[in-house]
């Protein structure tokens, strides 16, 4: 790790100002950033910690929505959304290990958009709204591909609003080494229809399996996806499984989520 300067502002305004400096990078738990810096693959000269900003740390249940502050840890989400949005709580409770869950934050995870991260599936699968220091972005517009988002330079995720579904379930099939999802599916059932978001599987990052959404919106049963085919053209193929395998797992995990909710 190279030397760097760490600043810890206490307001969003100060953080945004600090991030205007060249080579400054937000730090929101560091569960990806720090290992990358240790391996000298990243060498920001200045880290702007978002962890000292009280207004970024909250979980609020209001009506049919859950609002989560950008610097809220996975462990906090797991604990505080258990009753209002158990599908989300269960996902948060299964990210990484206790150390990761107590340091990693939702804003950090979404902004990083690792193609194998869990949270993007919850955000996209819930049709969440991502709030930043300057605007609101619908999850459908937020994720732009592997490690790419709609965030501009220096833009901070300040919060995420999840509409609470009738029911939701996250089925995760882990890669045995990293324990990240090899393929995981978040299925959420709303009055307006069913949403299915898939993570870990695609070169393009998290995506919605729209054929399954349509089928499940008509008939919410595992049989509804039985005859669908997942296109494996953009699926990740690596040491742990082929694209065809990930496409297959997408279907199996979707069916299992639906079965569990039926």
């Amino acid at each position: 790790m190279h030397n760097f300067e760490l600043v810890k502002p206490t307001s969003i305004e100060d953080a945004v100002a600090a991030l205007k400096e060249e080579e400054a990078q937000p730090y929101s738990g560091g569960q990806t950033l720090l290992p990358t810096m240790k391996a000298r693959l990243a060498a920001p000269t200045k880290l702007v910690s978002l962890l000292g900003i009280d207004e970024l740390r909250y979980v609020r249940i209001e009506g049919d929505q859950v609002h989560v502050g950008g610097a809220t840890t996975h462990a906090t989400v797991a604990r505080e959304t258990k009753e209002a949005y158990p599908g989300l709580a269960s996902l948060a409770a299964r990210i990484g290990d206790p150390a990761v869950r107590n340091r990693g934050t939702i804003g950090g995870s979404l902004a990083n958009n690792d193609p194998s991260a869990c949270y993007p599936a919850a955000a996209l699968g819930s049709g969440a709204t991502i709030k930043t220091d300057r605007r609101e972005i619908a999850a459908d517009d937020f994720f732009e591909g592997m490690f790419m988002t709609a965030l501009e330079e220096g833009e901070i995720v300040t919060g995420v609003t999840f509409p609470i579904p009738q029911a939701a379930r996250y089925e995760k099939f882990i890669q045995p080494a990293s324990r990240f999802p090899l393929t995981a599916v978040f299925v959420a059932k709303y009055d307006a229809g069913v949403r299915v978001a898939v993570t870990g599987a695609s070169e393009l990052g998290v995506f919605r399996w729209t054929e399954a959404e349509e089928a499940l919106s008509k008939t919410f049963s595992a049989d509804a996806v039985k005859d669908l085919k997942v296109d494996d053209a953009d699926m990740i193929s690596d040491l742990h499984g082929s694209g065809a395998y990930r496409a297959h797992l997408t279907k199996v995990m979707t069916a299992r989520a639906v079965t569990a909710l039926s």
Partner: peptide, 8 residues
């Protein structure tokens, strides 16, 4: 015998 190999 990782899952993908057994499945294949």
């Amino acid at each position: 015998l990782i899952p993908s190999r057994v499945w294949q």
